[in-house]
């Protein structure tokens, strides 16, 4: 037997799981090869050392506690995933349904009122205007005239605001962070005057904002622009 052959069999040899004939060959080799004899000795010592290593047992109480905690945490994560999924579905559905303003270049060329569907929904006191256009309208000017009851957060002193927007073909969502005055909850309906100017053409719109009953709910929930408008969708 050669040294490299013994190397391949050393595990089985030390474990005593080797055929008698082969074991004899190994023994013969070890009597004449000092290096292999030393290697076998080191391996035996190694296995003796490793045999002293015993991981502690997990008692049934700890085992049950770990399992129970895992189940509780697992339930929480599953619930969180479901909540996130339902929120995303709801948000996607709202985005699809909330077509706020149908505005096309072709409608600018006619004196007939545009076939507009106006819709808004409240989300943490933000109004989302969804403007649908059939073609790209870069540099269109969006103008809003705010009623006394509503102001843009951070720009409370402005009753009139206008800014250029690059509208892309399809739906464009513009989020307005608004504040509603406390007394606004007693108003049945608020109106936001809006217009879009594009290539020397201007179109005015009146966007109705309906409020929920002032007697119920928190202030942040009173702004319920979506309900009446979604009914038509």
């Amino acid at each position: 037997m050669k040294c490299n052959e013994l190397n391949n069999l050393i595990d089985d040899y030390i474990a005593g799981q080797i055929e008698a004939g082969v074991e004899k060959q190994i023994s013969d080799h070890l009597t004449v090869c000092i290096d292999c004899r030393e290697r076998v000795r080191q391996y035996k010592e190694y296995f003796v050392r490793m045999a002293t290593f015993n991981a502690p047992n997990l008692d049934s109480g700890r085992s049950a506690r770990i399992l129970r905690l895992a189940v509780e945490e697992g339930e929480k994560r599953i619930a969180a995933k479901k909540h996130k999924l339902s929120f995303m579905r709801g948000f996607a559905a709202a985005s699809i349904l909330a077509v706020a303003l149908l505005f096309g270049v072709n409608t600018l060329n006619t004196s007939n009122p545009p076939s507009e569907i106006v819709s808004m929904y409240d989300w943490e006191r933000d109004i989302s205007l969804v403007i649908h256009v059939p073609n790209d309208m870069d540099g269109a000017l969006l103008v809003l005239d705010l009623p006394d009851d509503i102001s843009i957060r951070g720009l409370e002193y402005l009753a009139h605001i206008e800014w250029p927007v690059d509208l892309k073909k399809g739906s464009n969502v513009i989020t307005l962070p608004i504040n509603i005055e406390p007394y606004a909850e007693y108003a049945e309906q608020l109106t936001l005057a809006a217009s879009i100017e594009y290539k020397d053409k201007k179109r005015d719109f009146m966007l109705d904002i309906s409020l929920a009953s002032p007697q119920t709910g928190k202030h942040s929930q009173l702004f319920d622009a979506s309900a009446a408008l979604f009914n038509n969708v």
């Binding site: 770990i66 895992a70 189940v71 945490e73 697992g74 339930e75 994560r77 995933k81």
Partner: peptide
Amino acid sequence: QDLLVELYQ
């Protein structure tokens, strides 16, 4: 614990 939470899901 981490493994079990993952397995639960």
